[in-house]
Each structure stands twice: as C-alpha cells, then as structure tokens.
Design a binder for these strands. Structure first.
Length: 412
DNA sequence: TCTGGGGTCCTAGGACCC
DNA sequence: TCTGGGGTCCTAGGACCC
C-alpha cells in the first residue's frame, strides 16, 4: 500500500526499576536485597506504594493493603514513603534524559517518553542509544531503569515492561503485532480489571484474539474506547492521550489533597479542621503554579466506604485559602449528616484560569491583604516545613496525627 | 485482602440558551 | 399549545494509571 510517507517514529519508554524502593536503598544501603515494602507500617491503614523484588516473591505488590502484605511476608521491612526524595531523584533522571532528546515527557514520577526520531547521526542506532542512556542513568543517579523502544508510545511502554528488570528491548519496526499477540489483554495500558472482565466474557484472552476482531464490533460494544482498543491491539497509539506527540509538560488540570483518618471520626470540629488544612495545601499549590480555580469539589467517604463528591463552581476564580475553604465548608455542611463517621475527606480544585479575572473595586484591598499574607505564609513553610503556619483552627486538631513530621528527619 | 493519594479521561443527564 | 434540536456548562460517578 502506498502510505503517505510519514517517517516511522522512534519512541523510547524509560521506566525506573522499583523506583521508591531503590531510592530508599540509597538512603539506607542495609535494605539492599531484602524484602522491603514502601508505603507505611505493617499495622497501618493504607496500601503498598512499592515492593522490592525480594518482597514480590511472596506475592506482595503495589496497591495491596499493608496489612495483607504483612501477612504474606512477615519478615518484610516496612518503610514510610518520602515523596520529597522521590521527586528529587525524578528530577535527576529527567536531567539525564534531556541530554538525549529535547522531546522528553515525564509520564509520572518514575517513567518518561522520549522521541528519538531522526537522531541516528547523533546517537547511533536505537539499541546503542538505549545502552548509552541506561549507563548514563546508572552513572548519574545510581538507579536502574528499563528501556523499551518502539514505533509508538504503546509499543515502547509494553516493551519496557517486558525488559524489566534492568533491561533494554527494541521492537523492530514491523514486529509490533507479533510482540503483542501472545500477551494477555490486561497488558495493554488502559485495560484494567473491568475491561478485562468484559473482554473475557467475550472469549477474548490475549491481544491476538483482539486483533482478529472486526473493528465495528468493538466500537458497537464499547463505543469510542472499543475503536481505540482495536488500534492498540495492532500497536497503534489510537485515541486519547497516547495519540499526542511527545513533548513538554502541560499545566495540571486539577489539584487536590485528601486524607484518610487512622480511625473514622464524626467529630465535626476535627472534620472541619481537616478541610481547612486540605484547602490550605491545595491553595498553596495553586499559587506555586500561578493558577486560579473556578471549581471546588468536596470528597466524602464514610465508614462503609461509600464515597460521594460534591462540586461548586465559583463566580470568580481564586487561589485564596479562605475562599476555597468557605466553599468547601458549605458543601460539607450540606452533605454531611452529623453523627455519621467519616473515613476520608478530600478537596479538589479544577477549571483553572491563569489570572483571577476582575474583582470589584471594593473587595480589592481586602483581597490584596490576603494575597500578601499568604505569600508570607508560603515562605515560612518553605523554611520551616508544612506544619509551621496555619489559619486559626486549622492547627487545633485532627490533622496533625499524620502530617506532623519527625523533627529529627528534617535537617538537610 | 479491607481497601492511599495524586492524577487523567470519559459518560451521561439536566439546565439553559438560541 | 405542543414541542425540535444543537451547543455549552455544570455536576456526579467511574475506570484507569503510577
């Protein structure tokens, strides 16, 4: 077939191996080779963020409740997560990748896509470039990664998963379908538990089965997603985000914080104090990103795990703690029945605008005073840590159980 | 098993306007 | 006086990812 000659892309997917665990090992080398679980202590409410390969041998994996992990692997060492450390190392890794291509996109804290199309003169053939990248990563961050290379993001990502741990896999152009065909449908990014079950019900087990099906059948059955799925089974970046070119980061679409109590509570003072704290944390990040939010959303989860969200759109976008909190508190009072035990509270903001729009002139002075006070508070928190400043009752109760850091840990 | 926290994207229904 | 259809905004929920 005479295709219009769009050159084949060369996409790298770089995935750090057991990232959180590996970073913890750099801080405490005695952890090396042992079963390690990152995410919290063995008797805490919460789930596994990452497990070392030694722990995985016992069936421990991420997203598993910590208590379950403790049962499966009693000898495991449980470590609290340190997001600041992981962000540091993520930035180091990002810097390494930028040396190989200006087209780098961090897809999450521990993985990235690179477009190396047309860089053969500079880096040599894909495998050579991959090995150089792999070595540079180890040299400059002391961390292992796996590299998948393909003609699409999808194929590169699947390839890096196959290459793990600490490997490189190049899917030669034209071999995409053969790589994918024997894999379970769940190996396709975007196919989770629900979709997998739906497909199984149709007798579809592996990607090869999927590729044989008529596109129209999949579209009829699963809508837009079905159509995309058909393309994915052939290794194409069909539909949605996958279809976009590899580029630099974009502004966030939403900013949120949530908190699960160690014990469910119906204490309204404690609940509202938590909401205030969460509102402050969210607004601080809005200011860091120079964003103003129009939509505010409350998340409520009760002891039975029933979860609701309730949103409100403001007349004017804001990044001011008191305005967000006011809206959140109103939503909370409307939707929480006193006496009901609460497991989780969340505050989310979205519908961002870059500026705050126009305010009426009378409000202006008050508004400016707030802004000044908040910027001062942000600076204090930069210096002394998150617990240093809070609005009135935000400090009183409730939230400190978990946010309070061990002073001994904050030096540096 | 007893289920975190931070995100993205999609769907579907209702309100409202033309 | 019974009733169209499209477009946009808003809200709620859910699947999925790391």
């Amino acid at each position: 077939m005479a295709e219009p000659s769009t050159p084949l892309r060369t996409i790298f997917h770089v995935d750090m191996d057991a990232f959180f665990v590996s970073v913890e090992e750099l801080y405490d080398p005695s952890l090396k080779g042992k079963p390690v679980v990152v995410g919290g202590q063995r008797d805490e409410r919460g789930v596994v963020s990452a497990a070392s390969y030694a722990a995985r041998k016992f069936g421990v994996h991420s997203a598993m409740p910590l208590r379950t992990a403790a049962k499966l692997c009693p000898q495991a060492i449980f470590v609290n997560g340190h997001m600041d450390r992981y962000r540091d190392y993520s930035q180091k890794a990002h810097a390494v990748l930028r040396n190989f291509s200006p087209l780098v996109e961090m897809a999450s804290i521990d993985e990235a896509y690179l477009d190396l199309t047309g860089t053969e003169r500079l880096h040599g053939p894909p495998l050579k470039a991959a090995h150089a990248l792999h070595a540079a990563m180890k040299d400059q961050t002391q961390l292992n990664c796996s590299v998948g290379i393909g003609t699409s993001r999808l194929v590169a990502k699947v390839a890096s998963a196959q290459a793990k741990p600490n490997g490189v896999l190049w899917v030669v152009p034209g071999m995409e379908a053969s790589l994918l065909a024997p894999l379970k449908v769940g190996a396709i990014p975007g196919v989770g538990k629900v979709m997998e079950k739906n497909l199984h019900a149709l007798g579809i087990e592996c990607v090869g089965d999927l590729a044989k099906l008529d596109e129209r059948f999949l579209e009829e059955r699963f809508g837009k997603w079905g159509l995309a799925l058909a393309g994915k089974s052939r290794g194409e970046d069909a539909g949605g985000w996958f279809d976009t070119s590899v580029g630099e980061e974009t502004d966030p679409k939403s900013i949120s914080h949530e908190h699960t109590y160690n014990e469910d509570t119906a204490n309204s003072e404690q609940l509202e104090a938590t909401l205030m704290k969460l509102s402050e944390m969210v607004c601080r990040r809005l200011r860091e990103h120079h964003l103003y939010a129009r939509t505010v959303q409350l998340k409520l989860r009760d002891e039975k795990f029933n979860t609701i969200t309730r949103a409100h759109t403001l007349a004017a976008p804001t990044q001011i703690d008191a305005e967000i909190y006011e809206a959140i508190r109103t939503l909370f009072r409307k939707n929480w029945k006193p006496g009901t035990k609460v497991r989780l509270l969340g505050v989310q903001t979205s519908s961002f605008e870059e500026g705050e729009g126009q305010m009426n002139l009378l409000d202006n002075t008050k508004h400016d005073k707030w802004k000044q006070a908040l910027s001062t508070a942000d600076k204090l928190r930069d210096k002394f840590g998150e617990g240093a400043v809070g609005m009135a009752s935000g400090l009183k109760s409730g939230f400190r159980e978990k946010t309070q850091e061990n002073p001994a840990e904050r030096k540096k």
